[in-house]
């Protein structure tokens, strides 16, 4: 190999390395979000409850916000708009799903947590957001979210807001889709 060929080969190897790195960035981002709680992303599958002593010395307000995106004739409402919880204890909150359209549809609730620091300390045992839901025309359904705030939640957090946005599920999931894992959750 001439020196030029050697240099070009090395450069191309570096280039291929960067291409691989770019492809890896997407899963890396997800991992990074899970570790740091960046962007209020929460685990997309069920986590076990940690049995720890309930911190009865403080209350944290947990708010629920629900929204429906375009194209899905559904309504989603929490039965309790907000609850006051002790860190360490697990709670169950019911959400009412209604399909007021005239055909069966599949939908998916996308979760978000604010402040994002709190997402590290929120464990969900059960959530309808772990998988798609299917509702018949006019069907009415109550589904639970069972969650726990861990006791190491920073003292500065007094309010945690959980938001769920309903979107129509893609009818035919295509290649490469980063679908929410279907396992976990009993809802």
């Amino acid at each position: 190999m001439t020196p030029v060929q050697r240099t070009v080969t090395k450069t191309v190897i570096a280039l291929i390395g960067m291409v691989c790195f770019t492809i890896a960035l997407v899963p890396l981002y997800d991992v990074f979000c899970q570790i740091t709680g960046l962007n209020g992303k929460v685990a997309s599958q069920a986590q076990p409850i940690i049995s720890e002593e309930v911190d009865t010395s403080r209350y944290v307000t947990v708010q629920f916000i629900t929204r429906t995106g375009s194209g899905l004739p559904w309504r989603l409402e929490p039965l309790d708009r907000q609850v006051r919880v002790h860190p360490g204890q697990s709670y169950k909150v019911l959400f009412a799903f209604t399909n007021y359209g005239d055909e069966a549809r599949r939908g998916r609730a996308v979760p978000s947590v604010s402040p994002s620091e709190a997402s590290l300390h929120l464990r969900k045992v059960t959530c309808f957001c772990f998988q798609e839901q299917r509702l018949e025309a006019g069907e009415h359904l109550r589904l639970p979210v069972v969650f726990q705030l861990t006791t190491d939640l920073p003292e500065s957090v007094h309010t945690v807001t959980l938001a769920y946005t309903l979107y129509p599920a893609a009818n035919n999931p295509t290649l490469g889709e980063r679908a929410m894992p279907a396992q976990g959750g009993d809802a």
Binding site: T22, L175, E177, R178, A179
Partner: peptide, 20 residues
């Protein structure tokens, strides 16, 4: 091709676009 890297509706994240 119907993927959802940046589409919240499919479990993606618009902020990922900005980071990348």
């Amino acid at each position: 091709f119907g993927t959802s890297f940046f589409n919240a509706a499919g479990g993606g994240d618009p902020v990922l676009f900005q980071h990348l």
